[in-house]
Design a protein around this nucleic acid. Structure first.
Lengths: 126, 126
DNA sequence: CCGCATCCCTTACGATACTG
DNA sequence: CAGTATCGTAAGGGATGCGG
């Protein structure tokens, strides 16, 4: 792959920007099984306000990852679903999620260790 | 994998938090080939200020992904390198980067399309 | 060169309340 | 239920300058 060039302002930054916020990846993931209504998404996800969910969906829509559709019979019934492009992002997201499951404990352990620091090391963040 | 549970406040969020800022992934990537001094990192990366780089490295250090070492001979010569844990994150990062190389064009195309909108669709972000 | 201290700005995010 | 409008806070990030 030798994606070394993605430093500076290479194209790969684009994907990191897509994942550089709290909710994009989570919402994409919540849509993995098929179309979902906003209220369903909020239930599945938990802890996301209506406003932020809408913002996130607009952002994903803007980037071509998500599609918005109103039920022809009941136009107030809205559904969102992944586009073909959006589905292709599930694999990388899954890779990140799988990593977390495997190494999440180590990260938390490191955080705790950093909070009871060896006094002579350059001070940690905490 | 069925990481469906990572919605709500599951552990998988941990990894997304790690990648939920502009520079963490980029700096990790810049360290992939071995130890680097801050000045080297800034050259490789481009567009990152000294202050922000330091903050980022502290953050990564705090999460156990990066290690800071001073040259015993010249203590003002500092080097950072990936920890074993940090190296394991390279694979998921690579997955994201590879995705960007493959689909980045489509994202940019979608962005442009959203900026010259079909007037009757729910307004895009722009 | 390292990295800390300031200052300032922008934006994400959250809570709440309100309209169709 | 879907979405918007406000308001407020917190944090990321950029620019600059200083001290070790």
């Amino acid at each position: 792959m030798t994606t070394d060039a993605f430093l500076a302002d290479c194209r790969a930054r684009l994907a990191f920007d897509l994942l550089s916020n709290t909710w994009n990846a989570v919402v994409l993931w919540a849509l993995r099984d098929g179309p979902r209504r906003p209220v369903e998404l909020r239930e599945r996800i938990g802890g996301i306000s209506s406003k932020v969910l809408t913002e996130t969906l607009r952002r994903l829509q803007f980037n071509g990852l998500v599609d918005r559709q109103a039920d022809p019979d009941a136009p107030s019934r809205i559904e969102y679903q992944l586009t073909a492009l959006g589905k292709t992002l599930l694999a990388p997201i899954d890779a990140v999620g799988a990593w977390a499951f495997e190494y999440g404990d180590e990260v938390m352990a490191a955080q705790e260790a950093a909070c009871t620091p060896d006094p002579q090391s350059p001070r940690p963040i905490c």
